[in-house]
Computed example of a mutant assay.
Amino acid sequence: MKVGLIGVGSMGGLLAGSFLRAGALSPAEVTIASRTLSKAEALAGRYPGLAVAPSNAVAAQNADLVFLCVKPLDFRAVLDDILPVLTPEQIVVSITSPVKIALLEELVPSKVAKIIPSVVNEAGIGATLFMFGTRLDERDRERLLRLFSAISRPVEIPEEDIRVASDLSSCGPAFFAYLLEQFIEAAVDTTGIARELATVLACEMLAGTSRLLREGGCSPAELQRRVSVPGGITAIALEELGKATEGAFSRVLQKTHEKFAEDLSKVEASLRRS
């Protein structure tokens, strides 16, 4: 399988590296392009055999899969570059949530999918969000699902759920890392525990919690019940935590949805310009 990957910033580089480390792709199967040549060359240096294309069009030409890993407002320029070489047999994969599948299908002759990764895929875990265009057949879907199964758990979602699904899957690591950081800081400031020790304990706690929730058949509500005894230390602390965070995630989601609506409008306008 030949893969052209355009954009090797934080998510494009993460995807390329994750596929290669997992053995889902070999370096010889991947050609990358980036407007920042140093990033592409650095990635190729870590994975000998990975090809660096001189242009976006060269990366896309003759590729079975073309990954567009660029910022939403950069899509128009990239599409202008690659449109002359795209064919109906290719699959164009957008990893950018504000770019709608229907609009992308209007603009390219190829098959289209939208797949939203998460930073945790770098560890070979976590979900990837899958949305399929109308031109993909079952074989195309299986090819994409098999590829991403090497680094994640692919989850197919309706495109209208993309914002909240991305909040949970892709933004979530940052949200909970922030909360974990606050937990560690409070422990250090309140008790004087060594920061390094507090960080180790908190991170191991989070890893164990994740494993219980994923593999132990335990829901978030059940896990709280298992840890807290009525009237005990954890129960009293949970009550205080509930007061402090009441409505916090509703406000967070309101902000992400407001920003997404703004981005949708800007991206559609940029893509429809002639």
Rank of each mutant, 00 (worst) to 15 (best):
R141S: 02
L147H: 12
I125P: 01
R143W: 05
P158T: 02
L144R: 14
E160Y: 14
R141E: 07
F148H: 01
L168I: 07
V155M: 14
F176I: 15
L147I: 05
E181F: 09
S170G: 10
Q182T: 08
L179R: 04
L136T: 05
V120F: 07
A177G: 06
R135A: 07
R135W: 11
V155W: 14
R139T: 13
Y178I: 13
A186H: 08
V155N: 11
S170R: 02
E122I: 12
Q182D: 07
L147Y: 03
L129K: 09
A150K: 11
R163V: 15
E181K: 03
V155G: 12
Y178P: 04
T134C: 08
G172F: 08
T134D: 05
N121Q: 06
G172M: 08
A150P: 11
F132W: 15
R153S: 14
L147S: 12
R153F: 11
I151L: 06
E156S: 00
Q182H: 08
G133F: 04
S149I: 03
L180A: 13
S169L: 08
Q182V: 02
R153Q: 14
S169R: 04
S149P: 03
L179Y: 10
D137S: 02
A165I: 08
F132M: 15
V155D: 00
V120A: 14
F148I: 00
S170F: 00
A127P: 06
P173C: 03
E185T: 09
P154V: 01
R141K: 12
G172K: 13
G133L: 12
S170H: 00
I157V: 15
S170Q: 01
L179M: 01
I162Y: 07
T128N: 08
E138G: 07
T128R: 01
G126P: 00
A150C: 12
R139W: 03
D161P: 10
M131Y: 02
F148Y: 04
R141H: 02
I162G: 13
N121E: 12
A150S: 03
S152L: 07
T134A: 15
I125N: 07
A127V: 08
